[in-house]
């Protein structure tokens, strides 16, 4: 099942072309790593796909009415905004917003989804703590849990694992991979190509103002692509413990 389809998506901001003619489909079961150097347009692509930015071309999500879009895709922005000192539980429960209508409060099913999201991210012990007083990494985990509680077929996250410790990074990647395994799809922008190579089913490489490569990790993380887009050389090996990727040197 196709959860997102972009056709010739182009974005110009302040007269500058950021992305040109991006066409892609996201199928259920995919865990997509969105990679590319700083400024390649990873955030722009996801925001335009959600309809949060003016764009040309079509995105299947952007044409949905806002409430329906909130039930089709969850979005975790890079800025980790928590404006008020609410509890972690309250914060995660905000993810239920698109599913609760009118004046009615959260039902038992909504609470079950909140509990499940807290458990998935290992946050039960922080449930009643004030979210704004947690560490940056803990806040990031709580915001991922908030996106999970939204229970959408598609989850889009902007650098979700930046600033997490190694165990939490791997655990988060495994959570995303499991969601994909359950028939949902995840798009996450990532800078850690090693984790991307190990956990993602597909990588989308942005660069040079558009889609530079799209496919399984081994086909995208080629020496040519890395040299052309990232200006690095790297070691890529398939080992008994899975694929291992390590960037080595800057190529100028």
């Amino acid at each position: 099942m196709t959860l997102l389809s972009l056709r010739d998506l182009s974005v110009r901001l302040r007269g500058r072309s950021i992305l040109t003619d991006v066409t892609l489909d996201v199928e259920a079961g995919e865990f997509i790593g969105l990679i590319g150097p700083n400024g390649a347009g990873k955030t722009t692509l996801m925001r335009a796909a959600l309809g949060l930015l003016p764009h040309e071309g079509t995105s299947s999500l952007a044409v949905l009415p806002p409430a329906a879009r909130g039930r089709a895709a969850a979005w975790m922005p890079q800025a980790r905004d928590i404006a008020w000192p609410v509890t972690v539980e309250t914060l995660v429960a905000l993810g239920r917003t698109p599913h609760v209508s009118g004046w009615q409060g959260m039902g038992p099913q909504d609470r079950a989804h909140v509990d499940a999201a807290l458990e998935t991210m290992g946050l039960e012990h922080l449930r009643h703590r004030t979210a704004t007083r947690l560490s940056g990494g803990e806040q990031a985990m709580a915001l991922i849990a908030r996106a999970l509680a939204q229970q959408t077929p598609l989850l889009m996250a902007d650098e979700p694992i930046a600033g997490l410790d190694p165990a939490n990074q791997i655990a988060t990647m495994q959570v995303f991979a499991r969601l994909a395994g359950e028939g949902r799809a995840v798009i996450a922008s990532l800078h850690d190509l090693g984790l991307a190579a190990r956990h993602c089913t597909r990588l989308i490489l942005l660069g040079e103002g558009g889609l530079a490569a799209d496919g399984p990790p081994a086909e995208v993380l080629t020496p040519e692509n890395l040299a052309r887009i990232f200006h690095v050389s790297a070691h890529y090996a398939t080992t008994p413990q899975g694929p291992v990727f390590q960037p080595l040197e800057v190529i100028r």
């Binding site: 959600l50 806002p66 879009r69 909130g70 895709a73 922005p77 917003t97």
Partner: peptide, 20 residues
Amino acid sequence: GRGLDALTLGEDAAEAMGLR
């Protein structure tokens, strides 16, 4: 009320949750 609650997460996240 509900829209203001959603804005706790910032304008981008709130808009993506269906807030107009």
